[in-house]
């Protein structure tokens, strides 16, 4: 068993390096989700306002981030920002920025859908007691929309976490990138290292995403029961 492949995981700093990579992935996801969700709620609310110009702009924003593949977005920001706009961000910051803008776009659609499914009567009842526009959203419409948007939002979270595996393409030291380095460095000693490293990465991603997806499923079930 001296040369069992599984030992590649524990040789030297390998295991802690992989966990460090996972932390980078998680950190980028968390920052992107927090910023993206907040921005997305605002954009989603604005998309329900009766202003054709504003709605068109926000619609175009959504479609751009939805249509263009994430990899292309990452490359666009990673290469074009420094070259054409003289903005030098490190790879992690670019990743957070792109993911936050992507989350905001997807989130705006979730929020808009939830808001327009709140009955029109609720809006009128709010207006009738003298609420102004922002108050109407703050106290009446958004609280009622939250329940409707939670399952879709959690699914978006798992998508963001999974998509961090693309970040090695712009040289972020995420868990996949570090895994590949370890595999390369140990090719002589552990020829089947890839199996164990990718196996561990599979488990790590599973541990991050499965609880979220189970939570989403439970909430969805509870909502169906209430309906």
């Amino acid at each position: 068993m001296a040369h069992s492949g599984i030992n590649v995981l524990f040789a030297g700093q390998n295991f802690s390096r992989l966990l460090g990579g996972l932390w980078i992935s998680a950190k980028i996801s968390i920052v992107a989700l927090v910023i993206g969700i907040l921005l997305g709620v605002l954009l989603g609310a604005l998309r329900t306002v009766k202003n054709p110009l504003l709605r068109t702009i926000l619609r175009l924003y959504l479609e751009f981030f939805r249509i263009v593949p994430t990899v292309v977005l990452l490359f666009l920001f990673y290469y074009i920002l420094p070259k054409n706009f003289n903005v030098n961000l490190n790879a992690q910051a670019v990743a957070m920025l792109v993911f936050a803008l992507w989350v905001a776009a997807e989130m705006s659609d979730i929020v808009r859908g939830a808001l327009i499914s709140v009955p029109q009567h609720q809006k009128e009842a709010g207006l009738a007691i003298g609420l102004n526009g922002p108050q109407l959203y703050r106290y009446v419409l958004l609280p009622q929309a939250v329940g409707l948007m939670i399952p879709a939002t959690i699914n978006l979270m798992t998508r963001v976490i999974k998509t961090t595996s693309l970040l090695l393409l712009i040289s972020v030291m995420d868990v996949v990138n570090i895994g590949q380095q370890i595999i390369e460095a140990n090719r002589q000693q552990y020829p089947d290292g890839a199996f164990w490293i990718y196996g561990l990465i599979f488990i790590l991603y599973f541990l991050l995403c499965y609880p979220l997806s189970a939570w989403a499923r439970r909430l969805e079930q509870r909502q169906n029961n209430n309906a």
Binding site: H121, Q122, Y139, V140, P143
Partner: peptide, 13 residues
């Protein structure tokens, strides 16, 4: 003040 046929209390409050 206005009161509607369908009451329209805010269910979240």
């Amino acid at each position: 003040g206005m009161v509607f046929q369908s009451y329209d209390l805010f269910p979240n409050l």
